[in-house]
Design a protein around this nucleic acid. Structure first.
Length: 544
RNA sequence: ACCCCCGUAGCUCAGCUGGAUAGAGCGGCGAGCUUCUAACUCGUAGGUCGCAGGUUCGAAUCCUGCCGGGGGUACCA
């Protein structure tokens, strides 16, 4: 209905002397205000300096809509014009849900634009912790939202496998190996104290049948580096795979160096006259492009800052043909955004090519007591620990419930609770109950076909259907803002309606016309709940 | 000192980039199982949208200044 209506409103606005007027046409928060409302009269009144109330009347009079689109029109507050859809429109919307099936809610609005979504990108220095989990759930859901809206998406993970931290990692592992052999050995400054390296050390020694080359006086054996990087990466990959997150591309910082792209990037910056030497270091003029100050590219000791490979890496993403790169970062990196964007803009990339979604850190509590996390001390809750306790569905859903830039309190006890305090169970339950109707009737949902007879049904049925038809718009909006929590909010509201409907509107055993139409409605509702959960990477169980 | 995010019901948070009487869950109080799953439903109480100005037909939403919480301001990654 809205497309036809919007086009007609634009035409009428032109007739009234305001052809380019901006106006809204949306579902009002309060359903008693109709199903679609527009502020067109007020907006036109502003431009042509006329009485809004009179204009609203003229607009309504001038509307020429086909039969079966709108059943009612009214003016409210002398500013809004409210529309009610005709039953034909609603029945057609229902038919679109069934026809769309598992694709209902998808659109082509992205027009195949190629988007690179980079997320998690954890350092290969230890197991993934809970904060990575939030980034994983969010990045994956953002990617899914973009896919649902017709973008071509690549999920990418960047491994910072170069730099001092890896030396510290290797040194830490070497110390653990020496401990194993009964030697005294101190962990390096800035080293990693976690228990997991003790286990890695045991495995390494076992793999080599106890033959450890060298002692406390020696440097770590060279092969230790590849070994520990592979071990850490394998652990992370396995944790993510079990969490239902898969990547199309794993990019590595070392590769960016070896491919010569770092040097190419530096050459490009220098050729554009963006760099200068000072105090024995090489600087980039990022302050000309929105950053607070210029940044060092090459340190006095001749090595590069991590900034350099990051620029090269993002230039490489651009060269690979992406129309946009979206990075999901922890909020503690926010100060880094203007710097990287500045560099990319300086090299001629569009301002909005590089976008960052920030995730605030997660506070983990267990029944009210905070669980401290520190990779250094090694006392932390890993992502794996978390979802093994709560289940993958609950963990993913909890990470997505809140806006990325709001602090998240993750109560392990609450998230694993199988009670009504846990929204994920509430939503999944809606799906299970709807499926239960078909199971009790002994029929497959997909075999219930035909046109919905809305005249046989009541207001509660109509309200449920209207909520179902809002799903595609919600997906569109969530994708535009990169905010998956809009989908969880929608699903919780929909689940509330489903439970209420289930309670108040019996299906099986009603008069044939009612039973048939309610089965059709239940099939549509089940589809939309399933699609919403699937989009978020959460299961839609048939029974619980 | 400067920069970024947040501040909405007792608690956890929504609020569709300016719309109508600010919503939900949990918790409180009250009610409801002979009925397709009570992991549920219904009712009810609960608000100076941090504070003060400004912008306009209209502000929780936009602009300014304060207050409070968190994060960031490396030739670390």
């Amino acid at each position: 209905m809205s497309d036809v209506l919007r086009a007609e409103l634009v035409r009428v606005a032109g007739e009234l002397g305001a052809p380019d007027v901006e106006f809204t046409l949306e579902r009002p928060r309060d359903p008693t205000h109709g199903d679609l409302a527009t502020n067109l009269a007020m907006q036109v009144a502003r431009q042509v300096r006329a009485n809004p109330r009179a204009l609203a009347e003229r607009i309504i009079a001038a509307l020429a809509l086909p039969e079966g689109v709108v059943s009612g029109t009214e003016i409210a507050g002398s500013v809004f014009i409210n529309f009610r859809p005709a039953t034909e429109t609603l029945a057609a919307a229902h038919a679109r849900i069934l026809a769309g099936a598992e694709r209902y809610g998808r659109s082509t609005s992205g027009a195949g634009r190629r988007i690179n979504v980079e997320f998690v990108s954890a350092n290969p220095t230890g197991p993934l912790h809970v904060g990575h989990g939030r980034g994983a759930a969010l990045g994956d859901a953002i990617a899914a939202l973009l896919e649902w809206t017709g973008h071509t998406v690549v999920r990418e993970f960047y491994v910072n496998d170069a730099g001092v931290q890896i030396d510290n990692l290797v040194g830490s592992l070497w110390a653990r190996i020496l401990h194993q052999q009964g030697h005294e050995a101190a962990l390096p400054e800035g080293g990693y104290h976690g228990e997991y390296l003790v286990e890695t050390a045991e495995r390494w020694v076992a793999d080599r049948a106890g033959a450890v080359p060298g002692g406390p006086a020696d440097a770590p054996p060279p092969e230790l580096r590849t070994y520990v990087l592979q071990a850490m990466r394998a652990e992370q990959d396995d944790t993510l795979a079990r969490f239902g997150v898969r990547f199309d591309v794993i990019a590595s910082e070392t590769d960016v160096y070896h491919s010569g792209k770092v040097q190419q990037g530096l050459d490009r910056l220098a050729a554009a006259g963006l760099t200068y030497e000072q105090d024995g270091a090489l600087w980039l003029r990022t302050s000309d492009y929105g950053d607070e100050k210029d940044r060092v590219l090459r340190k006095q000791d001749g090595s590069y800052t991590y900034f350099v490979p990051d620029i090269a890496y993002h230039l490489d993403k651009h060269a690979r043909g992406f129309d946009q790169a979206i990075d999901v970062w922890g909020a503690d990196h926010h100060g880094y955004i203007p710097r990287l964007r500045g560099a990319l803009v300086a090299l001629g990339l569009p301002e909005d090519w590089f976008a960052v979604t920030l995730v605030q850190l997660v506070k983990v509590v267990r029944g009210g007591d905070e669980v401290k996390m520190s990779k250094r001390s090694g006392e932390f809750v890993t992502l794996r620990d978390l979802y093994e306790e709560t289940g993958v569905d609950a963990a993913r859903y909890w990470f997505l419930m809140r806006r990325g830039d709001s602090h998240l309190v993750f109560d392990i006890e609450l998230a694993s609770a199988r009670t009504d305090e846990n929204p994920v169970y509430y939503v999944q339950m809606a799906h299970a109950r709807l499926t239960g109707i078909f199971r009790n009737a002994g029929i497959e949902p997909a075999t219930v076909e035909g046109t919905l007879d809305l005249d046989a049904l009541g207001p509660a049925d109509h309200d449920l259907l209207k909520a179902l038809t809002a799903f595609p718009d919600e997906v569109e909006r969530a994708a535009r803002h990169l905010e998956p929590h809009r989908i969880t909010n929608y699903l919780e509201e929909l689940a509330r309606l489903v439970h209420g409907w289930y309670h108040g509107c019996r299906v099986l055993g009603e008069p044939p016309a009612v039973e048939r139409s309610r089965l059709l409605l239940a099939r549509a509702a089940r589809q939309v709940v399933a699609n919403g959960l699937t989009l978020l990477g959460v299961a839609a169980p048939d029974r619980m």
